[in-house]
Design a protein around this nucleic acid. Structure first.
Length: 105
DNA sequence: GGACTGACCAACC
DNA sequence: AGGTTGGCCAGTC
């Protein structure tokens, strides 16, 4: 039985290019709406080769200072639209998970 | 082995 | 309308 963050990494691998998801979304698919913190914890130790830059906050903002610029550059490189205030246009590129994604693991 | 912590979110005052 | 609080998992002290 894989641990929770293993499943988080699994989902991250499934995020298509040019799309983003919020921490809370992943949490909702995997356990419950309040598990977003765990997702953030999993991201904090981002294993290499993981597209962690496609995970943003629910309002599209990017929190962590220091990696914000890196994220922005990576997302722009993947044709992810940005809002004038520096946030990801999550309203347009929010990735909708296929139904039953939580049962796939 | 218990307590605190963390790249969060939403429900409640 | 804005600050506070509770809740989840795993890792560290």
């Amino acid at each position: 039985m894989p641990t929770f963050n293993e499943q988080v990494y699994e989902i991250l691998e499934h995020i298509p290019e040019g799309r983003v998801v919020s921490y809370g979304d992943i949490a909702k698919w995997l356990l419950n709406p309040r598990g977003a913190r765990v997702v953030g914890w999993a991201m904090a130790r981002c294993p290499e080769g993981l597209p962690w830059h496609r995970v943003v906050r629910s309002n599209g903002d990017i929190v962590c200072e220091g990696i914000t610029e890196l994220r922005r550059e990576r997302l722009i490189a993947e044709a992810v639209p940005f809002l004038p205030d520096g946030r990801v246009d999550i309203a347009q590129c929010r990735w909708v998970a296929p139904p039953g994604i939580d049962k796939r693991f």
